[in-house]
């Protein structure tokens, strides 16, 4: 479903973030990408949702090279991918409900669809009771669950989670991983970047280890390990 074909990514000052990466992720997989800070995890994910384009090689999504998507069509590609980040990226002046609804509004969904879908998805992430709360009234774990609800609202094919537990305590982190596993069980592909040993081991799924922009291990039933 997602294929990296000899991808190299250099940033402006010739800093090599990824070097000659070839990787294939199948539909319905749960892949943890681990490695130290600066190993290239975030860059790898950014290539998937086309925030960055590879310097060399190509990234394919459903057999289509992301290079071939015009800027105008790019938003439609992004609707296939739900994104979750360490810093949640919630809008502080909007309630949990509005934050999720915003994702639908921005894509031109009609009002009745919004009123129907948003409460449903918030229910799924366990925030049915807290829909009208603002982000600052929610705990870190709850905020991340709002972000997950927002990522899920388009019924994406892939969830890309970049250090989703980086700002959370162990209990909340475990809840987020469980939620990701639950989403994965329902058929959504999950890409999880993390340097948190516990949560990767808890997932106990395929682990790809990055080091200085290169893949040094790829285990189907992996454990978190860094040399």
């Amino acid at each position: 479903m997602i294929k990296f074909d000899q991808v190299t990514k250099k940033y402006k000052d010739d800093f090599v973030a990824l070097e000659d990466i070839s990787l294939e992720i199948k539909e319905g997989e749960f892949v943890s990408i681990v490695g130290q800070s600066g190993a290239g995890k975030s860059t790898l994910l950014r290539l998937v949702y086309a925030e960055e384009m590879p310097t060399a090689g190509a990234v394919y999504f459903n057999e289509k090279s992301l290079d071939s998507i015009s800027r105008r069509k790019l938003p439609f590609h992004r609707r296939n991918i739900g994104t979750v980040f360490q810093d949640f990226k919630l809008l502080p002046k909007k309630t949990a409900f509005e934050n999720v609804a915003y994702a639908l509004e921005a894509c031109g969904a009609p009002k009745n669809e919004i009123l129907e879908d948003v409460p449903q998805i918030l229910e799924i992430v366990g925030l049915g009771e807290k829909m009208e709360k603002f982000p600052h009234e929610l705990s870190g774990g709850e905020q991340q669950r709002v972000a997950m609800a927002r990522a899920l609202i388009h019924k994406p094919l892939v969830i890309v989670a970049d250090e989703p537990t980086g700002n959370l305590d162990p209990v909340s982190s475990a809840e987020i991983v469980e939620l990701l596993l639950k989403i994965n069980n329902l058929g959504t592909t999950v890409l999880l970047a993390s340097h948190d040993k516990d949560i990767v081991n808890k997932a106990a799924k395929r682990v790809v280890v990055l080091e200085r922009g290169k893949i040094i291990a790829d285990d189907a039933k992996g454990k978190y390990k860094i040399s």
Binding site: L74, P75, F76, R78, T83, A106, G108
Partner: peptide, 17 residues
């Protein structure tokens, strides 16, 4: 800035932004 970032991530069309 943050709204624009979120809009892009959730796939809002360029026109909408």
């Amino acid at each position: 800035k943050s709204e624009i970032e979120v809009m892009r991530l959730v796939g809002a069309s360029n026109m909408f932004i």
